[in-house]
Amino acid sequence: MNLFRLCGDMFHLLSIMVLLLKIRATRSCRGISLKTQELYALVFVCRYLDLFYSFISVYNSFMKVTFLATAFSIVRYMRYDKVVKQTYDREQDTFRYVFLIAPCLLLALVLNHRFTLTEVLWTFSIYLEAVAILPQLVLMQRTQNIDNLTANYVALLGAYRGFYILNWIYRFATERHYRQWIVWISGVIQTALYADFFFYYALCWKANKRLQLPA
């Protein structure tokens, strides 16, 4: 493990903590896309099935369980908590799951390293993670006032992606057998999706203003 990956993981963890704290402290999930959160839960379930049959490190296992637990906790708050669920922007969060899940599943069936159930599900999770942020970005585009915690949540997720790319570059340079084109291409697409958001995030941060995305 290198420093880039550790930073990436920590930003990922921090983004989830910020979101969970926002929901718990303000009893509100305004501006958060349940679709994106459910897609992330699906991503984690498909990718971390290896918890049952392979062990890499205590760190990895601990983080996997943490990501799974927090993802389901967020979904539970947004769907079932009596107070929180009333603040969910149901009418605005209209992105269709099938538009993301179906192409990713098809692609995973065709483009994978090995045609086994766990490998296809792992590959599916890589593809799905790349586009799972889209419902959140669409929701933010529709919301006039994006609160700071939501903006910071997405910015932290973007930082996680950025550090993972640095990690891949580092591993590509230092490890002989690190040739992961599936991960590379999905990762670059995923990070590129944030580029537009980051542009406006930086503009508003410089001007010390609340984030507003142009329509």
Binding site: R5, D9, H12, D50, S54, I56, N60, M63, K64, F67, H113, R114, W122, Y164, N167, R171, E175, H177, Y178, R179, Q180, I182, V183
Partner: peptide
């Protein structure tokens, strides 16, 4: 194990 190398990431 080259195809498996990204499996040690999260």
């Amino acid at each position: 194990a080259s195809a498996q190398s990204a499996h040690d990431e999260l």
